[in-house]
Design a binder for these strands. Structure first.
Lengths: 351, 351
DNA sequence: CTGAAAGCGCTTACAG
DNA sequence: CTGAAAGCGCTTACAG
């Protein structure tokens, strides 16, 4: 109604002939405290004047902002590049929006603690979700720096770090996938690494290594190529592996996007998948279903994990009790599609 | 340092032996007002005590929150489903983060004006970006409901609606694409519509219709199938069009995701693309490059448009002048890939 | 059931 | 160059 200066609670109170406190009570939850007559007067006045409460003032006075920070480090600021982050965000929103919590996006520009904590610990947040903090991230010192509730998603941190998190069991899932590849007759299996600063990348590589060693397959250093979870690096890695290792019958990529890149490399080099070489991914993003051929991969419930993490966070915020640590490893599931064949040279190669 | 009660400016001021106002000035921009000696005392105290300013309080007092709302309607809440929205978000962040503005995500749950405006006009925002509001959206009454600066991106609104926006020139771009198809010899061209409540969908359809009529090709109603911009609807539409129209040599989808769906439908029905039928998309999302075959489509600069819109918004926020309307149509660009062939039956079909 | 008052943690004229 | 004071728009005990 009025456009320039918003109507304040005080004006509503005055118009309704009640005190500020009463108007506040009626308008926000404690309506039961007051008589119907009073409540109605207030409600009517508010309506008439087009009152809309100022959240800033409410937050300052009540020490609740209803805002959760969605914290990402520089590594994943390009949302369009990082499907994973989007899935997480979606899970969080699905949980939070109906509860009338809001998300504030915090993209950290750099690692300076100064910068980091001024973005986070400035009174605007009730809590935060940190997405896949890297090894050595200043965010891992959260507990020493801030008393704000926080849950990590997408990084399974070492137990010593006193933060709650939920993530897929990367290592076991990758072990399972490679184990299955070996069961298909593959022995000479290449690996495209994720970024070395990501816990998940290391854990996936560990799963791969453990599976080979479990079957006493001697891992050749040249079977491993570096990557960064991006498609482009998958192309590079694929070309490198294919060029240097004519003996490979399969390439395991640390995530789907790189696997798609490997597929591209195969196409470029005239290798048929899966006839000439098998390729696998990890994450089961949409794209895994749409590559040619569709990717065998590990499915995990990113969206649900994010919801779960958010649930924990909200519980932590709402009960001001001790913030019990919750560190949860969720199992992944092998999804078999068309990018893997029985290894034809299995026997000759395996000795 | 202290964990539970954050250090306040007052404590810093007292520790430094200066007034509240002085401490505030030194710590936030107006350092030049004070002597070096004073400034240093304040800075040291702040450092020593681990002071971190409370943004809420600053915002309330200064009437600046440094927060921009990113407003989406129910239709696009599933971020994972809507690549477009992600690109927009990315463009906004790229512009805003270095300026120390933040994004608050506002996913509208429903259309009730009550709900809508209480989410938006509650003092927490300096301005807002609205993503692709639909026809009939309550958001279109923004100017009557709120004095908050706002820019729309992804919907080219009718001129009568007093809102600033920037979007691709959907109609011209689609005209251009269909014009080109016709130049390749195609005459019987199907169309997969976008959601009828999206301005962009209508505009794209208009472009298609105008191109056909420009060449005096009689559009058959059965050439048009409904869709909703999602891949699934593209599959359905593709199947329907293919089943009902053996005479079609090309199918134009209103966006890439549906075009991917049409491709899937073709595969399912044993139609080769582009040999048996040509298919085109719109938007040139990543996926357009990765389908088999890669899609001929319209490229437009979603990311840059979003940055541009954000720039306008910030300008509007920072100069409290008259909010001059800016309505900008950005041209699209035809990107030719492998999903279109010369129409072999061009001549017989065209009469 | 209701009102008066203190307080949330800052910024911003205003004097001097 | 600096301090005292008012004010931003609410919530929350506390009396009564």
């Amino acid at each position: 109604m009025l456009k320039d200066r918003p109507v304040t609670l005080e004006e509503v109170a005055r118009h309704a002939g009640v005190s500020l406190g009463t108007a506040s009570n009626v308008l926000h939850g404690k309506r039961a405290l007051h008589s119907n007559r009073t409540a109605n007067k207030v409600l009517e006045s508010a309506n008439l004047l087009g009152y809309r409460s100022n959240h800033l003032a409410r937050s300052l006075a009540s020490k609740r902002t209803q805002i959760i920070g969605f914290v990402t480090e520089r590594h994943q600021t390009m949302l369009t590049r990082n499907r994973y982050v989007i899935h997480v965000l979606d899970g969080i929103l699905d949980y939070l929006v109906p509860l009338d919590y809001h998300i504030k996006l915090i993209s950290l520009l750099n690692d300076e603690p100064q910068h980091v904590w001024s973005q986070i610990d400035n009174g605007t947040l009730d809590g935060a979700i940190v997405v896949a903090p890297v090894i050595g991230s200043p965010l891992l010192q959260w507990r020493e720096r801030s008393s704000l509730p926080v849950v990590v998603v997408g990084s399974a941190l070492p137990k010593e770090i006193p933060l709650s998190w939920v993530d897929v069991d990367n290592e076991s899932a990758m072990f399972q996938l490679v184990d299955w590849l070996i069961a298909q007759g593959h022995r000479n299996i290449g690996f495209v690494q994720g970024p070395p600063q990501q816990w998940s990348a290391l854990q996936r590589e560990n799963g791969y290594r453990r599976a080979l060693s479990h079957y006493q397959i001697a891992l050749q250093p040249r079977w491993i190529a570096p990557g960064d979870y991006d498609t482009g690096s998958g192309v590079e890695a694929g070309k490198q592996l294919l060029a240097q290792n004519p003996d490979l019958t399969a390439i395991v990529a640390a995530n789907d996007q790189m696997a798609a890149g490997v597929l591209e490399a195969c196409r470029a080099l005239g290798k048929r998948v899966p006839e000439d070489i098998s390729v696998t991914g990890f994450d089961d993003m949409d794209l895994a279903r749409h590559t040619t051929p569709p990717l065998t991969t590990i499915r995990h419930t990113i969206h649900d994990n994010a919801m779960k993490a958010t649930e924990r966070l909200v519980a932590q915020i709402q009960s001001d009790e001790k913030p019990a640590l919750v560190q949860e490893l969720v199992p992944g599931e092998l999804v078999i599609r068309d990018s893997v064949s029985q290894a034809r040279q299995a026997v000759p190669v395996s000795r």
